[in-house]
Simulated assay, not measured.
Amino acid sequence: MKKISDLFSRSSRKRILYHSLFFGAIATASVISQAFSPSSKAYGQTPAPIVDNTEINSYAQAVLAMEPARQNAFEEIKKLIGNGEIPKIVCNDSNSINGLPRKAQDIAVNYCTRSQKIVEDNGLSIDQFNKITIELQNNNLLKRQVYNTLLRLQQTPESP
C-alpha cells in the first residue's frame, strides 16, 4: 500500500507549488492594481494592449518581489487583529485602511508604499503595471507568458 506522500511525486509537488505561487502572484497583482488605480475598468471591446517581453519580465519580477512583503504585512496585521477577520485592504481606498487598528494602518501603508517602489524599480509605471494586471484577466496568451516567466524566474540554477 502506498503512503499518501508517495501519491505526490516530486514533479507533481513542484507543479502544485508553481501553480500556487502563480495564482498567489496574480492575486497580489490584482490587489496592487486596485490599490494604485483610482478607477480601473476593463472594457470588453477595447483592443488589447501590446505587452512586450521586457514588460512581461518586469511585471513578473515585480510580482515576485512584492509577494514576501505582502505575506509579511498580512501576517503582521493578522497578529494585531487576532481571531478577527482581516478586511480586504486596498491601498487607494482610505476607508479600507482607516478601518484597521492604528498599527495595522501603518503596516498597510508601508506595504503599499514599498509595492509602488518595487513596481517602479522594475521599470514599470503604476499605470503600466495596472494595465497588464487588467489584461491578464482576459488574455490567456498573456497569462501563459507571465506564468512561464514566473516559473523561469523562480527556477534555481542546476548544480553541475
Rank of each mutant, 00 (worst) to 15 (best):
Gln128Asp: 10
Leu151Lys: 13
Gln154Ala: 05
Phe74Ile: 02
Arg152Val: 01
Lys131Leu: 08
Gly123Asn: 06
Arg70Phe: 13
Ser33Lys: 05
Ala29Gly: 15
Ser11Asn: 15
Ile134Gly: 06
Met66Val: 14
Gln154Val: 11
Gly82Val: 07
Asn110Asp: 13
Asn148His: 04
Lys117Ile: 09
Gln154Pro: 01
Lys88Asn: 07
Asn92Gln: 13
Gly24His: 00
Gly44Val: 11
Asp127Leu: 08
Ser94Leu: 08
Gln154Ile: 09
Glu55Leu: 06
Pro160Leu: 13
Asp121Gln: 14
Asn53His: 08
Lys103His: 15
Gln61Gly: 00
Gln145Ser: 11
Arg15Ser: 11
Ala104Pro: 03
Leu136Asn: 04
Lys2Gly: 00
Gln105Asp: 06
Val31Ile: 15
Ile16Phe: 14
Arg70Tyr: 15
Asn95Cys: 10
Phe129Glu: 00
Ser96Lys: 09
Glu120Thr: 14
Ala27Met: 12
Pro38His: 06
Asn98Trp: 05
Val31Ala: 09
Asn53Trp: 06
Leu80Pro: 03
Ile97Ala: 01
Pro101Lys: 03
Cys91Leu: 03
Pro157Asn: 14
Asn72Pro: 02
Glu135Ala: 14
Leu7Tyr: 12
Ala104Arg: 07
Pro68Trp: 04
Thr54Met: 11
Tyr147Leu: 10
Ser9His: 06
Arg152Thr: 02
Ser159Phe: 15
Pro87His: 08
Pro101Val: 04
Arg102Ser: 12
Asn92Ile: 12
Pro160Thr: 05
Ala104Phe: 08
Ser40Gly: 12
Pro68Ala: 04
Ile56Phe: 03
Arg152Met: 02
Ser40Glu: 08
Phe23Leu: 07
Ile107Phe: 09
Pro68Ile: 02
Ser96Val: 02
Asn57Pro: 01
Asp6Gln: 14
Lys103Gly: 03
Ser125Cys: 05
Arg152Pro: 00
Arg13Ala: 08
Leu21Glu: 03
Gln45Ile: 13
Arg10Asn: 15
Phe23Ala: 05
Asn122Ile: 08
Ile81Pro: 05
Ile16Asn: 05
Arg144Ala: 12
Thr133Ile: 01
